[in-house]
Write a protein that binds this DNA or RNA. Sequence first.
DNA 1: GACCCTTACGGCGTACGTAATTATC
DNA 2: GATAATTACGTACGCCGTAAGGGTC
Lengths: 288, 288
Amino acid sequence: MELRQLEYFQMVSRLNNITRAAERLHVTQPSITIAIQKLEDELGVTLFDRSQKQITLTAEGQVFLQRVENILRSIQDAMLEMNDYRDLQKGSIKIGIPPMIGSFLFPEIFANFKTLYPHLELCIIEEGSIAIRKLLEKGELDLGIVIISHPSPLLETLPITKGEILLCLPPNHPLVHCSSVPFFQLRGESFILLKEDTYHRQIIMEECSKNKFTPNIILSSSQIETIRGLVAKGVGISFLLDVIARKSADVISLPLSEPLFIEIGLAWKKDKYLSKASQVFIEFVKNL
Amino acid sequence: MELRQLEYFQMVSRLNNITRAAERLHVTQPSITIAIQKLEDELGVTLFDRSQKQITLTAEGQVFLQRVENILRSIQDAMLEMNDYRDLQKGSIKIGIPPMIGSFLFPEIFANFKTLYPHLELCIIEEGSIAIRKLLEKGELDLGIVIISHPSPLLETLPITKGEILLCLPPNHPLVHCSSVPFFQLRGESFILLKEDTYHRQIIMEECSKNKFTPNIILSSSQIETIRGLVAKGVGISFLLDVIARKSADVISLPLSEPLFIEIGLAWKKDKYLSKASQVFIEFVKNL
DNA sequence: GACCCTTACGGCGTACGTAATTATC
DNA sequence: GATAATTACGTACGCCGTAAGGGTC
């Protein structure tokens, strides 16, 4: 059985005339005669009554026509849907966003992208940056926003922006009047950090070990807003990205004497197939 | 787009492996590679991720697979249905007919059915009603005419008609002038019965045991005509269905004092696939 | 190096078109 | 005799199989 035969059959059924059907389909009418004969042979039924000059569907032919109309419509639908994907009328991107970065960078990117590509769905996975990297490497995410200072051989990256990690203090903290703070001075402080699965935390921990002390971590959260609240209340100190810290009126943020810069970027698995939608997103980010 | 491409696509999707798919489909694997490439070209989307050693469906591919599974199933269905019709044109029904019932009921049904469905062949298996029931339950018959007073959990039944079992006597028998005969009066008679594999015989035997005697069976036959001849010659007495007995001029038939009724019907195996032809026959009998 | 997919190429089947034939009104 | 379907036949396109080439683990 061939689709062509079904299409011929459908047209002949509609027109009750092989010659007209042939004209419509831009083939000669013997082609249609043969095609339908073969179809009938294969099915083992007579689809058309040829006893009159004008051929008409038999009872079996009518039943088969119903089926064929359905089948051809389904195929049409499937092709149209694929066209939609091709033309980006459809498609979804699974993208991982870590809390620190997602909270300031993503809303902006997201809004702009959606106005350009309203049909594309962005499926957001909120995880720590280390978890996101693992998911990317496993191929379970299409894209992720990560700190690209720790490059992975499995991932392709595209820088988006840079940020500085600032020390965040309660307003009544003795250090608030310094213009910058050396890291070792934080030795005795209570630290409030992001959860273990983030590079942000890893960076702070590395600084501590460089300065030969183990931080007193009194709390870990993955919610920026929680951390900020705790710092404001004087529970402890923390570290936020500059863009976030600046928006926080109730905490004081200061640069470190040896400033900590991080580079933020988009990442995806090398050599993995990227859906058209993901490719478009990468292009979009490139042109920011 | 070609059906072959869709079939290849489906198999590759299922196995995630072109080589295996090629083996299953009895083609070489380049054929599949090419077919799928062309499909992707036509659709304008990438269906498979070929970056790993093992190819896997892309997001678009997964969507397309759903569609394709549907389409191929529809086509399969359409072909199966046409096969059913083909069987209607060339097909045959294996139907079991017991002697007593077949001899009066079947000729009439058969003749009418044949005029309506001249293409259908009715293949008649003549066996006793018990044997027919067993063949039905084994699935070796499509349909059977049986006495449905003894229902079977494996069989579906459709009542056709009822009949009364009449006592048949030679014209010179002392009981012929009675209007009805009590069964116990037959104690000393010579019985001529149908063979062991019939319910008809079983019913008579049950009556005997109810009346506490063992019949003197001098002969068993499966031929109604033989039985009738023997009764006419005065060899013994027998029992025939009313419709048959009435047509027999050379024997006298009388009702029993406690009349024996049987219900006759069409039966077929539950849950067994019924060919279109058999379905048509059942419908035909329903509308008698 | 083993496995798997893709590319290259030649043969063959077959679907198509042209032309002739048959059938119906 | 006109219209329409079928049959007959030669061509040409395209699918398939064989063989070689590139990737990945």
